[in-house]
Design a protein around this nucleic acid. Structure first.
Length: 351
DNA sequence: AAATCGGGGTA
DNA sequence: TACCCAGATTT
């Protein structure tokens, strides 16, 4: 077999030195592979692992997931982030179970049509479950190839994506696509890491262009940088009749489909004075009054594109709010079944 | 082609 | 703080 030197060394490393173990490794059930891949999108294995175990335990087959209520599945996803993945997960599970006889599409092109499944995930499922020779292109692969071949074309440019896709495909051994895809991602995660890569112990060292030139830390190249904005979220945990006001977030914004307390967003930060918050709430209250209002400390959370700064304010109402507010009253037991963003689960007083 | 979608780990 | 992580979708 006439494989590239890179591929031979990679497979050799995989066979004799790769000790990385994960529950989905070697799995051929497309459901389990699909579930693991969706969970792991832009998510570290260590972070996604517990979620995968929980999901497989509660939803062993795609039918179990398809039959579940949205709220329960979102509760399982709570805290993992990128919640559109959960919405798409449900849509795909139901399509597979109810409209495709419980079968996942058996090839790359068919998999690509599934909601939440893009080029990476389709290639991963196709190669792992169906042994289709489709090279995966994830953050690990970009990094490994960029360094080994000394490629400075930005990985987030269109020409870069084409270049890397062609290269990755050319390096893949046609008879063992799954092992190759798994190996290059493991190699990127364990040896050719973003920071402090293990170059001195790397079996590809002698052929690595970035190592030869001493530019390992400069690769891969990205052209776009993200800019952040700061938002100020003031959450009111309003109690009436031993119940609390809550709503589900809708629209094109963070935390879509998750739940939250009465929210008043501000363009600027607010001080601690309780009068400020009484005034803010006035338009929601009608004739109702606030009792035992408490203003919490300022808290903050960093997201990829936003910094959320805010406070949690608790109060009891003397009357219920108008039904036109869009918020509904729920008991603590009912609230416990709903998914909330981390900002709330981490900082909010318990209802 | 660019902008967004979370949350956590690391230097 | 900035970058990264088994990316995908929308505009």
């Amino acid at each position: 077999m006439n494989l590239p030197e890179f591929t031979k060394n990679l497979l050799n490393w995989n066979q004799f030195s790769n000790t990385r173990q994960m529950p989905w490794k070697g799995e051929t059930d497309p459901y389990k592979i699909w579930l693991s891949e969706i969970i792991l999108q832009q998510t570290r294995v260590e972070q996604g692992l517990a979620y995968y175990e929980k999901f497989i335990s509660r939803f062993p087959k795609v039918q179990d997931l398809a039959l579940a209520q949205d709220a329960e599945v979102f509760k399982y996803w709570e805290g993992l982030g990128y919640y559109s993945r959960c919405r798409n997960l449900l849509a795909t599970a139901r399509w597979v179970a109810f409209e495709n006889k419980g079968r996942f599409p058996p090839d790359y092109e068919g998999l690509l049509k599934l909601k939440g499944v893009g080029p990476y995930t389709a290639a991963a499922i196709a190669s792992f479950a169906f042994a289709e020779p489709r090279a995966v292109l994830d953050g690990n692969v970009f990094r490994v190839l960029s360094r080994y071949f000394g490629i400075t074309t930005p990985i987030d440019s269109l020409t870069g994506k084409k270049l890397y896709a062609q290269l990755a495909q050319a390096l893949m051994p046609p008879d063992q696509p799954g092992a190759y895809n798994q190996a290059i991602m493991d190699f990127g995660a364990v040896v050719c890491k973003p920071q402090a890569p293990l170059c001195s112990a790397c079996v590809q060292r002698t052929d690595c262009e970035a190592y030869r030139l001493g530019v390992v830390g400069d690769l891969p190249v990205k052209e776009k940088s993200i800019k952040k904005r700061t938002r100020y979220f003031y959450y009111f945990l309003l109690k009436w009749n031993d119940q609390y006001y809550v709503r589900q977030r809708v629209g094109a914004d963070i935390w879509q489909d998750l739940h939250e307390w009465v929210l008043i967003e501000q363009a600027e930060p607010l001080a601690t004075d309780s009068s400020i918050y009484r005034n803010l709430l006035k338009k929601y209250l009608g004739t109702a009054k606030l009792k035992q209002l408490r203003v919490g400390e300022e808290v903050r959370q960093q997201l990829s594109h936003q910094t959320i700064i805010g406070r949690f304010i608790t109060a009891e109402l003397t009357q219920p709010l108008s039904t036109e507010t869009g918020y509904q009253l729920l008991s603590p037991d009912a609230l416990a079944k709903l998914a909330f963003p981390r900002f709330i689960t981490a900082f909010s007083p318990k209802p």
